[in-house]
Simulated scan of single mutants.
Amino acid sequence: MVFGVADALPARLAGDIHAVLRRYASGDDFLQLFPVPLWSFLHWAAPTDGAARGHAERAHALSLLLHLWDDHLVDAQLPLNFARLHVRGAVWADFVDAARSLCRESAVPQSVVDSHADTYLNAVGAPEEPADLAAYCAVFERQAAVWTVVPRILAESAAAPAELAALVGDFAVAWRLTDDVHDVAADTAAGVRGAVWHELRTPAGSSRPSVADPDAAAARLRARAGRLLDSAEHRARQAGLTGLARELALSRLGLP
């Protein structure tokens, strides 16, 4: 699905985009870049067929690509050229169009899409400096607004449980925390102020390990991620999404 974003480009420029996408995806399975519950909710909670299903799948796949593409363009992991800049605009336009089409099909106001789009653009385009770890998590939750728009539309149309957007948001922040712990050495070398950096500068309480201990900070972050996953799993079970709840439980393996 995402490989079609370059179809309108001349063959030479399209070739560059396809090469980048294949490097990301190691083939054609783009979704393997992301943890399962971040996209499998479509299997458990979205309409099984019809136009709404197609719009939901396209909008969410494009939201995943958009988040990755923007992140890598901004931090220069993906060197900028004309084709990559052009594709960024095309992906955004296609994402908004698919999400609005889902709204029309689902009788949901298109202002839902506008609200999530504004939240995302403000969070990534003019990010505030987080004061602490809680603020850092809140910023990322806003950056994940493109990932929660499809769950929210589905919930507002009553096609999915009301808890869907919140549980996807909980999972997204948990993933951010565990990813930051995994990447702490690279982030430190690059001067990136990730979750570990913010946890280390948080004043220690009397019952907490020393904030000067990065291993203890990482353990606390994994525990925080575990609580978010517990929350997401609880929401899924309350909503009757037992398959999604099992996948969320599996995502907790290796955490405290």
Rank of each mutant, 00 (worst) to 15 (best):
Ala144Leu: 07
Pro209Glu: 10
Leu38Asn: 11
Leu62Tyr: 12
Ala59His: 03
Ala131Cys: 07
Leu221Glu: 12
Ser111Phe: 12
Ala166Gln: 07
Ala61Asn: 10
Val124Trp: 02
Arg53His: 07
Ala236Met: 00
Ala195Tyr: 06
Trp92Pro: 10
Gly191His: 04
Asp213Leu: 01
Trp44Thr: 03
Val74Arg: 13
Leu64Ile: 10
Ala189Lys: 09
Ala190Cys: 04
Asp230Gly: 09
Leu85Gly: 11
His234Pro: 01
Ala59Gly: 08
Ser40Val: 05
Ser106Tyr: 12
Val2Glu: 15
Gly240Arg: 05
Pro10Val: 05
Val124Asp: 11
Ala232Gln: 06
Phe3Trp: 14
Pro127Gly: 04
Arg246Pro: 06
Ala185Met: 00
Leu255Asn: 03
Gly254Glu: 06
Val96Trp: 15
His60Phe: 08
Ala46Met: 04
Ala45Gln: 07
Leu248Gln: 00
Thr242His: 08
Arg176Gly: 03
Leu78Gly: 03
Tyr24Val: 13
His43Arg: 01
Leu78Asn: 11
Ala8Val: 13
Ala126Gln: 11
Leu65Arg: 11
Pro256Thr: 02
Gly240Thr: 00
Gly205Trp: 04
Gly169Asp: 01
Arg104Ile: 13
Asp183Glu: 08
Ser63Cys: 15
Asp75Ile: 07
Ala6Phe: 13
His234Met: 04
Ala162Gln: 08
Val2Pro: 10
Leu73Arg: 12
Leu221Pro: 06
Ala223Val: 14
Asp94Val: 09
Ser231Ile: 05
Asp215Met: 08
Tyr136Lys: 04
Asp7Cys: 12
Leu73Thr: 02
Trp69Pro: 05
Ala11Pro: 04
Glu57Leu: 08
Pro161Gly: 08
Pro10Lys: 10
Val146Gly: 03
Cys137Pro: 00
Tyr136Ala: 05
Leu229Ala: 01
Pro37Met: 04
His72Val: 07
His55Gly: 05
Ala217Asp: 08
Ala204Glu: 07
Val36Met: 05
Ala245Gln: 00
Asp49Leu: 04
Ala98Gln: 10
Arg100Gln: 15
Val91Met: 12
Cys103Gly: 14
Arg88Ala: 12
Phe3Thr: 14
Val124Gly: 04
Gln77His: 14
Ala225Phe: 09
Phe95Met: 14
Arg227Ile: 03
Asn122His: 15
Ala174Glu: 12
Cys103Asp: 09
His86Arg: 13
Leu154Cys: 01
Arg88Asn: 12
Leu244Ser: 03
Val192His: 10
Leu66Gln: 14
Asp213Gly: 05
Ala232Met: 05
Val36Ile: 05
Gly169Ala: 14
Asp29Met: 08
Gln110Glu: 15
Arg12Val: 10
Arg201Gln: 06
Pro151Gln: 05
Asp71Glu: 14
Gly169Lys: 10
Phe3Gly: 12
Pro161Trp: 02
Ala189Phe: 05
Gly205Asn: 01
Ser115Gln: 15
Arg58Ile: 00
Pro35Asn: 08
Ala166Pro: 00
Tyr120Thr: 09
Glu105Gly: 13
Arg58Ala: 13
Gly191Cys: 10
Asp170Phe: 06
Ala107Trp: 10
Glu163Met: 07
Glu163Phe: 01
Val150Gln: 07
Val113Pro: 15
Tyr24Thr: 10
Ala145Glu: 06
Ala126Val: 08
Arg142Phe: 08
Ala160Pro: 01
Asp118Glu: 15
Pro109Tyr: 13
Ala165Gly: 11
Trp39Lys: 03
Ala59Trp: 02
Leu73Asn: 06
Ala90Arg: 13
